Simulated assay, not measured.
Amino acid sequence: MSLDTVVEDIRDEAHARAEEIRADGEERAEEIEAEAEADATEIVETAEAEVDEEIEQLREQRLSSAKLEAKQKRLEARRDVLAQVREDVESRLVALDGETREALTRELVDAAGTEFEGSESVRVYGRADDEELLDSILADYPGYAYAGEYDCLGGVVVESEASRVRVNNTFDSVLEDVWEDNLREISDRLFDQ
């Protein structure tokens, strides 16, 4: 074997080895590239899923927030309507006159009177505009006297020093009781629930 043959064999072997290394390198590069692509795909899918989940959560939050805001506005509107109805009732009570006002006031004095049976001096307070009406009604009740004005829609506040009792039979107090006892029904009627 000549030196040229040995060199040629070594060169061929080196080329073969280099080709083998290059082929292994390309194969390894393809594997790494495939793994990287798989990782990238997985990362993209995970990121997309996270974004989709975040979008869904944000949508749910906004939807819940919008529903809550709408509910609050509905409740506020209902409160406003109920307040307006209450104001209308109060206005009508203030506007009562004649026989109706006298009959209602007399009933309220009678109802309060049960607390003051046997009292010699009973003071009755009422709306300033009702002073004449109260004087007229109280003429039928011995020991009862108009004692001054009371800020109310009508009706009476009755008290006696002897019994240390005070009865608030104003239109306001009666309206408050009726309003509280029937608020659910009033609301149902107004808002067709």
Rank of each mutant, 00 (worst) to 15 (best):
D188P: 06
Q61V: 14
E117Q: 12
V6M: 10
D88H: 12
R164K: 12
E87K: 13
E87M: 10
A23P: 00
D151E: 15
L96I: 04
R22E: 05
E31Q: 12
N182S: 12
A47M: 08
E107M: 06
V109H: 04
R78Q: 15
L63V: 03
S64K: 09
R101F: 00
G154D: 10
A112C: 09
D110P: 03
R184L: 07
D52N: 13
D80P: 01
L104W: 01
E131P: 09
G118F: 01
S163K: 12
L82D: 00
F171I: 14
D80E: 14
A139S: 14
Q61N: 06
L190H: 08
Y141M: 04
R74T: 14
Y146R: 14
D12P: 01
E131C: 09
E107S: 13
D177W: 11
D24P: 00
L190V: 06
I32N: 05
E19V: 00
E120M: 04
E35W: 03
D181T: 07
G126F: 10
A18L: 12
E161F: 04
P142Y: 01
G118Y: 01
R189V: 13
V44S: 09
V7P: 02
L133W: 02
V165C: 01
V124W: 07
A95V: 06
L190P: 08
D140C: 03
D140H: 11
E33N: 11
G25A: 12
E185V: 05
I10D: 04
E33P: 00
V167D: 01
E87T: 11
R62S: 01
E69W: 00
E102T: 14
R166V: 10
E30V: 05
A112I: 01
E180P: 00
D24R: 13
A70P: 03
E90H: 04
E8S: 07
G143R: 12
A14K: 14
A23T: 10
E90C: 06
A111M: 07
Q57N: 14
R28I: 03
E102Q: 13
A112T: 04
V6W: 11
T170L: 11
E13T: 12
V158W: 00
Y150M: 07
T105Q: 03
D192L: 10
S173H: 10
R62K: 14
I21E: 13
T105E: 02
L58C: 00
V109F: 01
E53V: 11
A18V: 05
D188T: 04
A23V: 09
F191S: 13
R11M: 05
L75G: 00
L175H: 05
V44A: 14
A47F: 05
L58F: 08
E131D: 05
E26S: 11
T170S: 15
Y146N: 08
N168M: 01
I55F: 09
K71Q: 11
D4N: 12
S119E: 14
V165W: 01
Q61M: 11
E35Y: 03
E132V: 15
L153F: 05
V165S: 07
Y150H: 15
E37S: 07
E180Q: 10
L75H: 06
A23G: 03
I21C: 02
R92I: 09
S65L: 08
A36D: 03
R164W: 03
E132M: 06
I43A: 09
R74G: 00
K67A: 13
E53Q: 14
C152F: 04
G154S: 06
N168C: 02
D129T: 15
